[in-house]
Design a protein around this nucleic acid. Structure first.
Lengths: 146, 146
DNA sequence: TCTATATAAATTGTATGCAATTAATTGGGT
DNA sequence: ACCCAATTAATTGCATACAATTTATATAGA
């Protein structure tokens, strides 16, 4: 590819990912709206449903988000009654996040989301699986560089 | 995959894309900082370097962004002296965006960005090319659904 | 014990994204 | 010429992202 080609928008991997990521979020939006959640709130809960009782630091490591993003997000989820935020007694620097009963229960209602997401599209599960693997490989290669 | 597996964060295609997209942006950041640009400003300029003299509407169609995002972004680029914003004389509803000399010239300095991006990583160009194709296919399938 | 350093969250400031609304302009139909 | 629906940007409000700074706490070492 020559230099002109290399600079075309449609030839940028970055743009493909950037646009696709937002497009996927758009598929989620109506499903998550039924649960009263935004996309970021949803993936935060996915992480908590897998492992509860974690610090902001640990949560941030999983979601690749820092406290600047997580603090207001968690305060919002707290105000919605889905989780509690409390300092760790053994080390007051850590803030421990715990799901409430309501937060736990939301998992049931959310369990249909992954299944419903690509309903009505021409996308095959195998295709998704293979693509996800490749994306994760790329991710790990980029992480090594930074 | 059973339901528990389906709800794991690492099994979400959406999260893979979301995280990967932000990781790619991180690779860009130091390179674009040399040009004084953010990532969104950069892809906006990529679109304009390909086709100048476009309306906000047309630009938004290429970048998949609406006026709510583009208006402040374009005002910023205007204040940086990279482009001009003016109403179309033949239809005052349209706002036409034109690159300035300075905006045109920035293209030269930016031309090394795509090449330098994955330097120092273990990522092969063929890998990127194949992956981009797959992502674009997924994109088009999702667009059909909406 | 006292202090310097390290660590974790919160805060601040800037830049997106996007839904919903508003304002200005245009073109079709009467 | 006049009214009305459609079109395009801009605006408003809310929710992220993230760098940089600040605050509070913990710990190692003099």
């Amino acid at each position: 590819m020559n230099n002109d080609e290399l600079m075309k928008l449609d030839n940028q991997l970055c743009f493909a990912f950037y646009a696709c990521s937002r497009e996927i979020t758009k598929l989620y939006r109506p499903l998550l709206a039924e649960l009263g959640l935004t996309y970021t709130q949803y993936i935060t809960l996915l992480a908590l449903w897998e492992q509860d009782n974690v610090s902001v630091k640990e949560l941030g490591a999983k979601l690749l988000l820092d406290s600047g993003t997580l603090t207001p997000l968690l305060k919002k989820l707290e105000s919605m009654g889905l989780l509690t935020r409390a300092r760790d007694k053994s080390d007051e620097r850590h803030l421990v996040v715990r799901l409430t009963m309501k937060g736990e229960q939301l998992r049931e209602k959310a369990s249909c989301v992954p299944v419903r997401l690509f309903e009505g599209t021409d996308v095959e599960p195998e295709e998704l699986f293979a693509l996800r693997k490749q994306v994760q490989t790329l991710m790990s290669k980029m992480s090594e560089a930074t």
